[in-house]
Amino acid sequence: MRPLLAAATLLMLVGIAWALLAAPTEVFQGLPQRIMYLHVPAVVTAYVALLVVFVGSVLFLWTRQARWDRLAHSAAELAVLFITATLVSGAIWGRPVWGTWWSWDARLTTTLVLWFIYIGYLIVRAWAPGSRGARAAAVIGIVGVLDIPLIHWSAIVLRTLHPQPTVFRPEGPALPASMLPPLGVNLAAFLTLFVALLLLRVRQERMLARLVEQLEAA
């Protein structure tokens, strides 16, 4: 676990330095465009995390093995973390470049709603007693991911009927090749960080579960 965390930290440092210092400056947006090197990896990692929550939840309900619940729960925490990072970095990027902190574009709406759904996951896990909490959370974990295409679709319906004044596209026009390497490094950094933190958290939960067993047996 430790070497993975060290690798993640190193990648992050390299990635951030590259993004801030060496990456090419975009013609139209200027400096704020560098936020992309955070925002895009954050959203990709968030969706990877959600996928892990989904798989963990399904496997937990299917096999009833606690380790799947631990995986899903840890991934949900990280999903909320990376969704928060996505929303905040996106808003900060949007303000100077598109003149607005927010818009009801399909992607933003979906990401915001997912934040609430997975906060709900964490709350239910905490507030419903014992194994009911784990099972309830697993149901939410599954339902939330199933909802993603529908949320996205509905936001598109909303937009085509009530057109937005500004077109919000966090990626801007197609990316020039020179931006791909720093983006790649940051993406790798975020994903490695996700895996490192996930493994650490899962292990922590496992230790806790064993301890509780021990204490109850005594």
Partner: peptide, 14 residues
Amino acid sequence: GYVAAAYTVVVALV
């Protein structure tokens, strides 16, 4: 300022 804010927030969250 915006770039600094964004990077600070994300790093802080982690």
